[in-house]
């Protein structure tokens, strides 16, 4: 970074002469040190996973969750400064509630992502604040059913409402990633944090946009595997795998964002470790071949 020490990196709201906001770039650094988070979107839903670095052996295993729910149908996971992430989640919950108060329906995932993108961007504008030290992955399933207005009584005709377009599908799974600059995009697969490079490489190998879509259960297994692949055993501390998922109304979570059940998670993790073991065995074989040359 050529302009470090020139004073342009000391505050938000001041650009460097070459058009950069250094505070935002430093915030990205904070993210790059955090445990890997990923999100996978498939036809049946969304899976979120995080490599929760165990900071101390005195912490209770399985406690202090890193993935949070917003409303009922949206999940948030983030890499970087955990307190910033907590605040992000608080704000997201406030946004979801204010949406419900006005429109009496759950907030669509896209609208939440948009509002939170705007919120994070605002923290890049002012002298008095610093940008968020997190990149957040927001996954949700907007109901594909016709949901009633909150508190609704009564009903329409028993033959169903007239004039609908029956071919048009509504709702579905959504996945967004929001960066410290406030930039956000929709993704098929998203990764951030320490192991993002390896994780992204793995995600790109998956067929997430094609017609042959993977099942939600497969996505859970892939998520577990990718977190393990992205983890650097030699250098990194121990970690816990935390995973959550959201399916449609007819799927396993019935449209809600919940933790992946223990049995499924453990099975996915066992498979992940097995696969990892196999590939490292292969590597060892190859290297021993080389020795013989």
């Amino acid at each position: 970074m050529t302009s470090i020490g020139t004073g342009y990196d000391l505050a938000n709201s001041i650009f460097s002469p070459d058009g950069r906001n250094f505070q935002v770039e430093y915030a990205v650094k904070a993210v790059e040190n955090g445990g890997t988070s990923i999100g996978i979107r498939c036809k049946e839903g969304v899976v979120l996973a995080v490599e929760k670095v165990v900071a101390s052996k005195l912490l209770k295993p399985g406690a202090n969750k890193r993935i949070a729910t917003v409303d009922r149908h949206i999940g948030v996971v983030y890499s970087g400064m955990v307190p910033d992430g907590r605040h992000f989640v608080d704000r997201a919950r406030d946004e979801a509630r204010s949406w419900r108060d006005t429109f009496k329906t759950p907030i669509p995932t896209a609208d939440l992502a948009s509002r939170m993108g705007g919120y994070m961007q605002a923290y890049t504008l002012y002298q008095s604040v610093r940008p968020f030290g997190i990149t957040a992955i927001v996954g949700g399933f907007d109901s594909e059913l016709e949901a009633p207005v909150d508190g609704e009584v009564g009903r329409g005709p028993s033959v169903g409402a007239g004039g609908k377009n029956p071919d048009k599908k509504h709702g579905g799974p959504f996945l967004y990633m929001i960066e410290p600059s406030g930039l956000y995009w929709g993704y098929y697969g998203a990764a951030t944090g320490k192991g993002r490079q390896a994780a992204k490489a793995e995600l790109e190998k998956l067929d997430l946009k094609g017609g042959a879509d993977m099942s939600l259960l497969e996505a859970v297994k892939e998520a577990a595997r990718i977190i393990h692949v992205a983890h650097d055993d030699s250098n990194d501390k121990e970690f816990e795998l935390e995973m959550s998922w959201i399916s449609g109304a007819d799927g396993p979570t019935k449209g809600r964002h919940v933790e992946v059940p223990k049995e499924i998670r453990e099975e996915a993790e066992r498979l992940a470790k097995e696969l990892l073991q196999d590939s490292s065995d292969e590597d060892n074989d190859k290297s021993s071949d080389k020795m013989e040359e």
């Binding site: 009584v153 009564g154 007239g162 004039g163 609908k164």
Partner: peptide, 20 residues
């Protein structure tokens, strides 16, 4: 497009009733 034709009634007290 999503819900087709719908009718809601809001009488004096401000309650909301979906009706055919």
């Amino acid at each position: 497009e999503r819900h087709g034709g719908q009718v809601y009634s809001i009488p004096l007290g401000g309650s909301l009733h979906k009706q055919p």
